[in-house]
Amino acid sequence: ADFLLYVLMDAIVDNYFNLMEVMGEKIEELEENLFEEKSNNDLIQEIHNLKREILKIRRAVYPLREVVNRMDKVEASLVTEKTQLYLRDLYDHVIQVSESIDIQRELIWSLMDMYMTTISNRMNEVMKVLTIMATIFIPLTFIAGVYGMNFENIPELKFQYGYFVLWGVMVVVFLGMLYYFKRREWL
């Protein structure tokens, strides 16, 4: 009976090894999808689902670890000495599975961190472009605002080519700012 118990528990633990291998492949697949340029919005949901699966497995394995440990240490005639050796081996396997679960759990947390980092980097790129565009158009808006006022005493208003000079100044300011941003490698 004790050997039968060992065989059943060993079969369960061996299936956990297979499950850990499948989970490892899922984690690798999610990691590859994360670094694709066009990662989809469902990726965070997949990461959460995988995290929940790992937690379910963890809740199942940790009590098993304690049970096998107690069976190994029990001083009863129900467990023969030959089976005790197998139980020690089984306990080592359970420890390996639980360590594998912990490692994969950490990998999933790092996947979530990487996902948040990539989202943050994308947002930073968008904010950089928007800031550069705003920085370019603020002086142009100021110039257009000054010359859009209804004053008669602005000297350039009487100048025949004042409109074209104003456009020329605005284009030079625009191109100058673009050159400055390119030189600073912001664009």
Rank of each mutant, 00 (worst) to 15 (best):
E53G: 00
D89A: 01
I143V: 14
Q84S: 12
T135G: 15
P139H: 09
L64D: 13
Y86S: 03
V74I: 12
K158V: 12
R105C: 07
F159R: 00
D72H: 12
I154T: 05
L64F: 14
N69Q: 15
I154V: 07
T80N: 00
F151C: 08
E156G: 13
T117K: 11
M112T: 06
R58Y: 03
Y91D: 05
Y115V: 01
L87S: 00
K82E: 03
L140Y: 06
R70N: 15
R105S: 12
L50C: 08
R70V: 06
E53A: 10
R122Q: 12
M127F: 15
Y86C: 06
Y62A: 13
P63C: 09
L78S: 15
Q84K: 15
L130G: 08
V68N: 06
I136F: 09
I54Q: 02
E75L: 14
R59Q: 12
Q84N: 11
E152F: 02
E66K: 04
E75P: 11
I154S: 00
Q104I: 00
I101A: 02
N153H: 12
W109P: 00
K128W: 06
D102E: 01
I54P: 02
R59V: 10
P155S: 06
I132F: 04
I138F: 13
R52A: 12
I54F: 04
H93G: 02
Y86E: 01
L55P: 09
M127I: 14
T118K: 14
G145W: 08
N121Y: 15
S120M: 05
A134G: 07
K158T: 14
F151R: 06
R88C: 03
A134T: 14
A144E: 10
R65Q: 15
N49I: 06
R105N: 07
K158I: 10
T135Y: 13
K128V: 08
I95H: 01
I103P: 05
R122E: 10
N69G: 09
V74L: 08
T83P: 00
N49L: 13
I154W: 02
E66D: 15
K158Y: 07
T83M: 00
A144D: 14
T135P: 14
Q160N: 14
K158H: 13
S110T: 07
S110H: 11
